[in-house]
Amino acid sequence: MEVVNARSALLSNYEVLSLLQELEADHLARTRTAVRIKKEEEAAGHTSTIIPGEKHPSNVEVIHNLRTVEVEAIQHLTAPHQSTVRQSAEGITGLTRALNQYELTKAEKLQIVNLAPTRLVELFVIVDDLAARFTDEKQEEILAAVEASLGAVPISVDPDAGEDDVAMDASNPSAWDSVDGMVNAADEFDDKGEGAGVEGDLDVDDD
């Protein structure tokens, strides 16, 4: 192993979060595909080629250290005190454009994007020597630009909903398959339950 460049670029929290959520969606899609293949094979009367705890030849194995860091980092970055939950790719692009007109360093811009300060005291911590470098109006302008870039505060944080969106967006065809598979599986299950109930009701009516 050789380190070519330990710090070639800086990443914002939002970028890292979307990358991790993509990985998470891939992982879910893969697990679903595996479950679907197993079910299909069992339905066809074969003994399954998938041995529990072992990888399928068409799949990469589950990487446990990656899963750990992925899940913990997603938890941290989507916590209610983080601004990432209110951010969007368009909002951040708009914000960085708006910040270009002020003489801010790269590090200060990155932190404004990451922490999204909406109070003066928060901006004061991020930007060195704030009062001397910017007039009161400019400071208010920066805060307004940050506020404009943020979406509404999500009322209830539903991690599953977010992941499903990503899974649907993923260009990976297996994601589509697996989602369909899940839907079908759910339908089958529901049919059984409802069907039994309806029949029961009909029986009662007939009597």
Partner: peptide
């Protein structure tokens, strides 16, 4: 918080 590091490996 996060960086991109370039690494070389076999």
């Amino acid at each position: 918080m996060f960086n991109l590091a370039i690494l070389k490996d076999t």
